[in-house]
Amino acid sequence: MRHSIFDTLPESLRSEILGVFQTMHFEHGKILFRAGEPCSGLPLVLSGVVKVQMTGLSGNNIVLYRMGADEICTLSIGCLMTGEGFRAEAVVEEDTEVFMMPRDVFDRLMDQSVGFRRGIMDSYGRRLNDLMLLVEEVAFRRMDERLFCWLEARAGQGFLMITHQELATELGTAREVISRLLKELERKGKLRLARRRIEFTRQFFD
């Protein structure tokens, strides 16, 4: 497996760099890094899914973004460039394989390869735009609107397997808030709730 960021490198540099890389495997539930830890390298995801989330002063979590195959950890880019520790944690959601690029290799490639530097900054810019949209959602939309839109985007299969706590983490609020809003939607006949399951009724789509 290859990561497309290496396609930005000159052939000679690419062969040299790839020769020293090893693939690392992480199982579901593994913590790749925690808030406050120093950043020792740049994870390049080859397969699987990694969730990056932040814990607020209230104790509630919010999912900032997810990394899938051929993606780069934006938080790690920022930490490597500033020298500061992580402000969030990364949790493996699906068994994942990554290349872990050491800090010294990252610094060298940023200095020596214009293509690599542009690829990194393009990735950083796209994710930053997504995070700005998330800030807008959290700051300016009511939670009931955000919840309904989140559910609506995933209602195609007719049901979801998710706990109220997991849904609260997705939206950055308390479980009690999500439970109350879901119960209200159930009262209106739009949902049927069961343990770890949300089922959409015909009325949900009206």
Score class of each variant (00 low, 15 high):
S76W: 03
S76T: 05
I77V: 13
G78E: 12
C79K: 11
C79M: 05
C79N: 12
L80R: 07
L80I: 05
L80H: 07
T82H: 09
T82K: 12
E84T: 13
E84Q: 14
E84Y: 11
F86E: 07
R87D: 07
A88D: 04
A88L: 01
A88N: 03
E89I: 03
E89P: 01
V91A: 03
V91M: 07
V92F: 10
V92Y: 10
E93K: 12
E93T: 09
E93C: 08
E93G: 04
E93L: 14
E94R: 13
D95S: 13
T96Y: 02
E97C: 11
E97S: 15
E97I: 02
E97A: 09
V98S: 03
V98I: 15
V98F: 01
V98M: 14
V98G: 02
V98P: 04
F99D: 00
M100W: 09
M100Y: 10
M101C: 05
M101R: 01
P102K: 02
P102Q: 05
P102T: 02
R103F: 02
R103D: 09
D104Y: 09
V105P: 00
V105W: 02
F106H: 00
F106N: 00
D107F: 00
D107G: 00
D107Y: 00
R108N: 01
L109Y: 02
L109E: 02
M110T: 06
M110C: 06
D111S: 10
Q112I: 01
S113A: 06
V114R: 13
V114A: 14
G115H: 10
G115M: 08
F116D: 04
R118H: 13
M121V: 13
M121D: 12
D122V: 11
S123K: 11
Y124A: 14
G125S: 15
L128W: 08
L128K: 06
L128C: 06
N129I: 07
D130G: 04
L131T: 05
M132S: 10
L133G: 02
L134N: 01
L134R: 08
L134E: 03
E136N: 08
E137V: 01
V138L: 05
A139I: 00
F140E: 10
F140G: 09
F140R: 05
F140W: 03
R142F: 01
R142K: 10
M143G: 01
D144Q: 09
R146A: 04
R146S: 04
L147V: 13
F148R: 15
C149K: 14
C149N: 14
W150H: 15
W150E: 12
L151Q: 09
L151A: 09
L151C: 07
E152M: 14
E152G: 04
A153T: 05
R154T: 07
A155D: 12
A155S: 15
A155N: 14
G156E: 12
G158H: 12
F159H: 15
F159M: 11
F159P: 05
F159W: 12
L160K: 07
L160S: 06
L160G: 07
L160W: 09
L160C: 06
L160R: 08
M161W: 11
M161G: 05
M161L: 11
I162Y: 04
T163W: 02
H164G: 13
H164D: 13
Q165Y: 12
Q165F: 12
A168N: 08
T169A: 04
T169H: 07
T169Y: 02
T169I: 05
L171H: 09
G172D: 09
G172I: 06
T173D: 04
T173R: 03
